[in-house]
């Protein structure tokens, strides 16, 4: 089994965050990589095919960007963002697409259960956080979504290209002006920050998913790709492509 590379970047601009994720997806020679990151300024990310006009209130976010992954919009503030990027023959992503969500979400659930939350996969029941027509990811749920307190708590979306996968995820520490009525970590007795949560998730990914990690950074090629690809995420034409 391959060692996974762990890249952690806190408080980066949206063009860097999205450019680097796309560079990791495009780099066919990249080792399987897990990123933990956060955003500055707070950023609303649109799903790849979402219409700009279909998300109400996006002007209230500090910045707006379009993701490469699908799904609904997410307001990236008070959250831990993660991305898995690897070849589709990695055990974590081998097999049925829906099963890959289950594996990742069950591992996250393990961490959250250790913290005292009753986190579980949604199954067939609708949620209190389901709210049609806002365009927000956390307001629409599927059976594989991770929920607690009958609300969606993890936003998750994938892009598949060239036999590789990019899997974006967001775990909310607190709600925001745009991500309302959702499950967060605010109900914990002790406040936890993004770095602390990342460390706990790593422990679970090791024990539950059998992954091993080496702390790393993007290589020179990936950094150059990220800079070049990142310019697209600053382009209003790409942002408003739909």
């Amino acid at each position: 089994m391959n060692d996974w590379r762990l890249i952690t970047t806190w408080g980066s601009p949206p063009s860097f965050n999205m450019g680097l994720d796309e560079a990791l997806l495009e780099n066919l020679d990249a080792p399987p990589t897990l990123r933990f990151y956060s955003w500055a300024p707070d950023t609303l990310s649109l799903g790849y095919f979402q219409r700009y006009e279909d998300v109400a209130g996006l002007e209230r976010a500090g910045a707006v960007v379009r993701r490469l992954t699908g799904g609904g919009a997410i307001h990236h503030v008070h959250e831990l963002t993660f991305s898995f990027c690897c070849a589709l023959d990695e055990p974590l992503y081998r097999g049925k697409l829906a099963d890959s969500y289950v594996r990742v979400h069950e591992a996250i659930a393990g961490t959250l259960q250790n913290l005292g939350l009753n986190a579980r996969l949604r199954g067939d029941s609708p949620l209190r956080s389901d709210c049609p027509d806002t365009g927000m990811c956390f307001h629409k749920s599927t059976p594989q979504d991770l929920v607690w307190e009958n609300r969606k708590g993890v936003g998750s979306a994938q892009r598949r290209r060239n036999g590789r996968v990019l899997h974006h995820g967001s775990i909310k520490l607190k709600s925001s002006i745009l991500d309302t009525r959702i499950a967060t970590l605010e109900s914990l007795k002790t406040e936890i920050d993004a770095a602390q949560l990342a460390a706990l998730l790593l422990d679970t990914f090791r024990s539950q998913l059998g992954l091993s990690f080496e702390v790393g950074v993007p290589d020179v090629h990936e950094r150059a790709m990220a800079r070049e690809l990142g310019t697209r995420y600053l382009d209003p034409a790409f942002l408003r492509r739909r």
């Binding site: 799903g47 790849y48 095919f49 992954t69 699908g70 969500y101 979306a157 290209r161």
Partner: peptide
Amino acid sequence: ETFGEIESVKAVSD
């Protein structure tokens, strides 16, 4: 070459 893209609630694929 990629000629299009398809999206489901689970993934965008080339």
